[in-house]
Amino acid sequence: MKKIIIGDRIVKSFGEGDEKRNVLDGVSVEINDGEFVAVMGPSGSGKSTLMFALSGTDNVNGGKVVFDGKDLSAASENELSDIRRTSMGFVFQQPTMLKNLNILDNIILPSMRDNRKNVAEISGKARSLMKRVGIAELENRDITQVSGGQLQRTGICRALMNSPKIIFGDEPTGALNSKSAQEIMDIFSEINADGTSVMFVTHDAKVAARTERIMFMRDGKIVCELKLPKFDGTDMDGRVEKVTVKMLEIGV
């Protein structure tokens, strides 16, 4: 199976001298094309730092990251920016939107850089994505006129605008109630079923249980993994129990 990401003995350090510590301590990880992966661990274990390293958002101090055959460690800042914009999508716990733009314009703005002359085409794609995630009627709303779940759906649409090969999510349901969180996870499951790789950082066992492989981190290392079958909408309680038991076993 094709590897969309290969991280080889990644080291990421913060601080200087006696205060220096490795937040990522020689982490090696592979993510397959079309895979749905979660990363769990206590605060400070290196989860988000790993995501930023694998996406080329943060430089590493050692090791190598290869994305879709491209060595990110050897890429220039402009090359990294192009890769993130055209091949990756990002969804965060609190979507960052511009207050002076409506929902539709916030979705299409990042795509305008490469397609300034095709506003109608870009807007059409955005509207199709909005319909897909259930916010078609909100395109003219200000970002202060929608709920947290609707704003997160807006962020998902924006992340999908350039048809990325992978979606990275950092606690993408962390600010949502349980109903909205489930709806957002349904959307991500559909995205993954269409062939897009998805990697989440999460503290939530219910979110992790929707994925097919969970990497558990502690002290800058991946200490173990748990594999689950593709989620088919059944036995959610059993999946959550497996994740919870594993968390208790390894103390994360």
Score class of each variant (00 low, 15 high):
Ser81Ile: 14
Val39Met: 02
Asn118Lys: 11
Ile122Leu: 14
Val198Arg: 00
Thr202Pro: 03
Ala75Met: 15
Lys179Met: 14
Met97Trp: 00
Lys179Arg: 13
Gly7Asn: 01
Lys3Leu: 07
Glu16Asn: 12
Gly46Asp: 04
Asp186Ser: 10
Val133Arg: 04
Lys117Gly: 13
Val65Thr: 08
Arg210Gly: 01
Asn61Gly: 14
Val119Cys: 03
Glu183Val: 06
Ala136Trp: 06
Arg132Pro: 04
Ser111Asp: 07
Arg113Thr: 12
Asn140Asp: 15
Glu249Val: 12
Met161Tyr: 03
Lys246Ala: 12
Gly134Tyr: 13
Asp194Val: 14
Thr144Trp: 06
Leu50Trp: 02
Asn115Ile: 11
Val133Pro: 08
Met97Tyr: 03
Asn118Leu: 14
Met112Ala: 07
Asn118Trp: 03
Phe36Tyr: 15
Arg210His: 13
Arg132Ser: 10
Lys221Tyr: 05
Asp170Met: 09
Val240Asp: 01
Asn59Ala: 09
Val201Thr: 06
Met97Thr: 15
Asn78Met: 07
Lys12Ala: 08
Met40Asp: 07
Arg127Ala: 04
Gly238Trp: 03
Val201Trp: 00
Leu80Arg: 02
Gly195Val: 14
Glu35Tyr: 08
Arg213Gly: 02
Asp170Gln: 09
Glu249Ile: 12
Glu137Tyr: 10
Asp71Lys: 04
Asp105Leu: 09
Phe188Ser: 00
Ile122Phe: 05
Thr154Gly: 04
Gln94Lys: 10
Arg132Trp: 06
Thr244Tyr: 06
Arg85Ala: 15
Lys131Leu: 14
Pro95Ile: 11
Glu16Cys: 07
Arg127Asn: 07
Phe200Ser: 02
Ser123Val: 14
Ser163His: 13
Glu212Gly: 06
Asn192Asp: 09
Glu225Ile: 04
Thr211Phe: 00
Arg153Lys: 15
Ser123Gly: 06
Ile222Thr: 08
Asn118Phe: 09
Gly238Ser: 14
Val119Ile: 14
Leu151Glu: 02
Phe52Ala: 09
Arg213Gln: 06
Lys230His: 09
Val39Cys: 03
Thr57Ile: 13
Glu79Pro: 05
Ile6Met: 05
Ser76Tyr: 05
Glu121Asp: 12
Ile143Ala: 04
Asn78Val: 13
Gly220Arg: 00
Lys246Asn: 07
Glu16Phe: 04
Pro164Thr: 13
Lys206Gly: 11
Pro110Lys: 08
Lys64Tyr: 01
Glu190Trp: 05
Glu19Pro: 05
Ala175Pro: 08
Phe92Met: 14
Asp232Trp: 04
Asp232Tyr: 03
Ser13Arg: 13
Glu171Gln: 12
Ser81His: 06
Met199Ala: 12
Ala193Phe: 05
Gly124Tyr: 01
Gly26Pro: 01
Asp18Ser: 15
Ala159Gly: 07
Ile187Met: 05
Gly44Trp: 06
Phe168Val: 10
Phe92Asn: 08
Met51Gln: 08
Leu54Ala: 01
Ile156Leu: 06
Gly124Asn: 11
Asn22Pro: 06
